[in-house]
Design a protein around this nucleic acid. Structure first.
Lengths: 341, 341
DNA sequence: TATCATAGGTTAAACGTTTAAGGTAATGTT
DNA sequence: AACATTACCTTAAACGTTTAACCTATGATA
């Protein structure tokens, strides 16, 4: 058992050199002769000194190799969402390659102040549920990269959600259609409900808003009207919310013959429920999704959706952060025609 | 724009009190009069001092509120596994409740030395792929809680994997059966293959070893022999590895009529493929899983498996860490009889 | 009235490093 | 031979806090 943890000072004393030299041996090889360096390193190993204390380094150097990933919602929810977890996957592999550590941060937290002093930067995936965080991130002294939404003057990674939504809606819609939209985080309600005249929440650059805009533009072009009582709000993309919304939509009258869903999870639950009710998809009801998750390829009929690479978004976000990129990046997406329209 | 970040010293000077007093105003309300405290706090807010620098606190206090979650494999893989992500979910909610932060740490990392100085403790989910980490954790100066395996003298959270495996195997097996086992991380190979005579890897307390023991005990009791060439190794529980292994098993001859799988993901891929090949489950082939994931309830026939609550494991692990528990905890499991045996 | 707690501060020494700025001897330059 | 460089170390001042130890009125106690 060690008596007490060795410090740089102890080691310096024992080896009869200055603390600076020990420090340099570990951090700046060019500052001392190779012979001395090797000698020091081997001595350190021998006496059980495993290198400079990281906590002290964080304070002194002002850098920790920790990157905070600010998730839109609670960690608990985000980690179980296939799209989000694929994103996390991308982020983590890019970070690991550079020896950076990943701190998961919930978007419903009170404030980023409890970590801002020691993290090296923030990757922000989706507009945090707590709007205050956005304001704090906007003035953060540490670098910030946003994904799936924007903050002025901060780099971001996005796809053109408006265009993607427009395209998928355009290929699904025809004049005379009766349309419903299953949207995400549109209004301020903790449960699934119709939007009606509730004010829309969140930043204008959020994916929900952009997608809604795209849907509406396509609808206008095709001359179909979508009233706000045909737009549903889901607080998140979980299966239980999705099932609830699906049920409401399927039992609403008149039953829509086109349903535009803002995520594949939502679309898939709707699809399953519709099929169970004996509704013919796409003859009686067309369904579109969003994201292009793996599961959407395995269903019969295959879901028509918009594919984007969440893993790639993660990688790009990490790289943007680590390389101090300043631009806002637009990633490609791809319409995947399945058999649900 | 701020000129330069305010420090405690600056604030103390501006308010004409000592740094200790400012510090106490934030950390130890009992050390100064309530009037002064409120005065200080409101002044701080006014001049834009948001509280003591966390990096400095980490060094000085020796605690950071950061807990490292050491995953068995790479973060990228773990986050996409439904069982692991449910566990993470449990951990994160328990931590968030206590204001702790979650650092994801990959089990295939070189060493924990780069974080041990600043984290408050380790939750270790599954035996890390890199064995060196286990040794380091065993002598870590920071608290450690292991899950799904054990380290001497460290608290742990487990289910009785041996017994669970024994039970599920017992209910599936009958004398004369031809049995195959689809196991996880049994030998040192990066790809799916039969075990044959390769030496088993990893700690004896790992879930794989315990489950294998349980299977074998049941087999012995039922008088069925399982040779090592009927045991497959999968490097991880991913779907692609599972499909590959499923294919090998289904085309092996003689084709087994019972397949014991060490995870539901593996079992489900096998089930799908078997059904596609026109094999009758359970008449021609019985299949058992492990874990009790949600997806396993939705398949037809429903999978026979062992249910455990990964979320609960996460919560318990976090609590054990935060409360300095010392004991090794055994959580309950439940046999879920589906229609695959 | 002399004595003793106590409340509400202050002082200064840590916490364990990094890194400018200096110093010195050896090497290179003219 | 005088001078400029360079290579290699050391000194000491940060980094921004926390906290034990100490101080000083003020009110309570005997």
């Amino acid at each position: 058992m060690k008596k007490t943890k060795l410090t740089l000072k102890d080691v310096a004393a024992q080896l009869g050199v200055s603390t600076a030299t020990i420090s340099n041996a570990f951090n700046r090889p060019d500052q001392l002769s190779q012979a001395k360096r090797e000698e020091i390193l081997s001595q350190c190993k021998k006496i059980g000194y495993s290198g400079p204390n990281k906590a002290a380094q964080i304070l002194r150097k002002g850098t920790s190799n920790i990157v905070a990933l600010v998730l839109a919602d609670s960690i608990a929810y985000m980690v179980s969402d296939p799209v989000a977890s694929t994103f996390i996957k991308g982020v983590s592999s890019a970070l690991q390659e550079q020896g950076k550590h990943l701190l998961l941060y919930a978007g419903d937290s009170k404030s980023i102040l409890d970590v801002v002093d020691f993290v090296d930067g923030f990757i922000c995936y989706g507009a945090p549920r707590n709007n205050k965080l956005i304001d704090e991130l906007a003035v953060s002294p540490k670098p910030v990269v946003t994904v799936d939404f924007d903050i002025d003057n901060k780099p971001s990674i996005n796809i053109d959600n408006e265009d993607a939504a427009y395209q998928v809606a355009s290929s699904a819609l025809n004049e005379g259609d009766s349309v419903a939209i299953l949207g995400l985080r549109l209004i301020d309600s903790p449960s699934t409900c119709r939007v009606y005249d509730s004010p829309l929440i969140g930043v204008e650059s959020s994916i929900s808003h952009r997608r809604l805009d795209g849907y509406m533009r396509a609808a206008k072009e095709k001359n179909v009207a979508i009233s706000k009582e045909r737009i549903w709000h889901l607080p998140e993309s979980g299966r239980s919310f999705a099932r609830q919304a699906a049920k409401e939509v399927l039992t609403s009258s008149p039953r829509p013959n086109v349903v535009l869903c803002m995520s594949d999870i939502i679309a898939l639950e709707l699809l399953h429920m519709a099929l169970e009710m004996g509704i013919n998809v796409p003859l009686d009801m067309k369904i579109t999704g969003f994201d292009g998750i793996e599961e959407a390829e395995r269903t019969r009929p295959r879901l028509t959706t918009v594919c984007q690479s969440s893993a790639e978004k993660g990688v790009q976000a990490a790289q943007a952060l680590l390389n101090d990129m300043e631009e806002k990046t637009m990633l490609p997406f791809e319409l995947r025609e399945g058999e649900t329209i």
